[in-house]
Amino acid sequence: MLLSWMAWTWQTAAFFVLVALALVAMGIWEWRSPGGAPRRGILGLDTTRGDRLFISLLGAGFIHLGWLAAFGAPPWGALAVSVLFAVAVFRWV
């Protein structure tokens, strides 16, 4: 197959589809409400909603790594914490 060297699996493909969908959703959000909703949150940082998505995704990555180091697989708990973290970031950061 043409893409066999990329070693695709449905799990990793689903991950990238979700990231792509998040970016598309952010694009639609920006189109509906331009300007990025800049604000200064509880950390004293000036963020737009794109920044908040970046912080959420990066934070989710490290939450998963921390979970794997501490408790091992499966990382469902890390996923739940990441969702809560993202909600908190979009609400307060």
Binding site: W5, M6, A7, W8, T12, F15, F16
Partner: peptide
């Protein structure tokens, strides 16, 4: 980057 992510969840001995 996508390829690296795919590899990081798998084992290979070559030959795709």
């Amino acid at each position: 980057m996508m390829t690296v992510v795919n590899y990081s969840f798998q084992e290979t001995f070559g030959d795709n």
